[in-house]
Computed example of a mutant assay.
Amino acid sequence: MTELSASLPGWRTLSTDGEHVREEHRLIARLRRDVVEDVLPEVGGAYSTEFLASLLQTAVVHLRDQVEHTNPAAPLLVDSYYYKILAKCRLAGLDENPMYAWWRSFPQPRAVIYLDVSPKSAWRRSGDGARLNRLEHYGTRPEWFAFESYQKNLRKLMLEEVRRLPVTMIGEQPSTARTAQAVREVLAA
């Protein structure tokens, strides 16, 4: 998103990643950090999966709010929207939840660009599991087979969620710069 933001003048990019959250919405970045550092390690213990999902809902609603408050004539690129969070909640054991129907009622994108990265590459990029959180692998510890299985299921659920939308798949690229270029090519088409 950083590379795309810098190279797409006139486009608005939305994400819940800290560096892409506007100053007036820093709460979103703090909540994300707190979820990763404080809540995820305690899911199944101090916190329920439902509690986790309710916190993740803040990110989903924040992105929806930003989409709705953007000039409809302005081009907009949104990182994951609610699709990835919904898929991760389902993989965490919340197959159905009343908020899913609400999320699915949010304004839909005109198109989806799916960046397809192999589990092997994602594992390597995560420092062989060292930088993973509990919503990126099965089990309590990041191990290769639990990560690979989770990532394959995450891909399946995300594609299931966007099946009614026009989806362009971008295969794995050798660098961030090449990935950003591939996305720009799709956006220009």
Results as ranks from 00 to 15, higher is better:
48 S>N: 12
111 A>W: 02
84 K>G: 07
87 A>G: 00
71 N>K: 08
60 V>T: 08
83 Y>R: 02
42 E>H: 14
69 H>C: 07
57 Q>C: 12
93 G>Y: 05
85 I>N: 10
114 Y>T: 08
98 P>G: 01
72 P>R: 09
106 F>P: 06
100 Y>A: 00
81 Y>W: 05
70 T>I: 01
82 Y>A: 08
58 T>W: 11
103 W>M: 01
46 A>Y: 09
77 L>N: 04
55 L>A: 07
68 E>V: 09
40 L>S: 08
94 L>H: 09
102 W>A: 11
70 T>K: 00
83 Y>W: 12
96 E>D: 15
85 I>W: 05
101 A>Q: 15
45 G>F: 10
74 A>I: 02
79 D>N: 10
107 P>G: 02
44 G>V: 12
46 A>D: 09
114 Y>E: 11
48 S>E: 12
73 A>G: 06
75 P>R: 10
110 R>D: 15
63 L>V: 05
93 G>E: 02
96 E>F: 09
113 I>A: 10
44 G>H: 10
72 P>Y: 03
115 L>R: 09
39 V>L: 14
111 A>E: 15
110 R>P: 04
62 H>V: 05
54 S>N: 07
111 A>R: 15
80 S>Q: 10
46 A>R: 15
56 L>A: 06
82 Y>I: 01
93 G>P: 08
40 L>R: 13
98 P>N: 08
80 S>I: 00
68 E>T: 02
56 L>G: 11
88 K>D: 03
104 R>C: 07
95 D>L: 13
94 L>S: 09
113 I>G: 11
95 D>C: 03
90 R>A: 04
80 S>R: 13
42 E>C: 10
95 D>T: 09
60 V>A: 10
70 T>A: 07
107 P>I: 03
86 L>M: 15
113 I>S: 12
81 Y>P: 08
63 L>H: 02
73 A>C: 00
114 Y>V: 07
97 N>W: 15
105 S>D: 08
73 A>Y: 02
75 P>Q: 06
109 P>C: 06
79 D>A: 05
41 P>N: 07
89 C>V: 00
54 S>W: 11
54 S>M: 11
74 A>G: 06
101 A>G: 13
42 E>R: 11
59 A>V: 04
116 D>L: 15
71 N>C: 11
109 P>R: 02
54 S>L: 11
84 K>N: 09
44 G>P: 13
103 W>G: 06
68 E>F: 00
74 A>V: 01
108 Q>R: 13
62 H>N: 08
110 R>G: 13
75 P>K: 06
84 K>F: 00
83 Y>T: 08
48 S>D: 14
92 A>R: 12
108 Q>E: 11
49 T>A: 15
112 V>C: 01
114 Y>L: 12
89 C>E: 05
92 A>D: 03
39 V>C: 09
81 Y>C: 07
43 V>C: 09
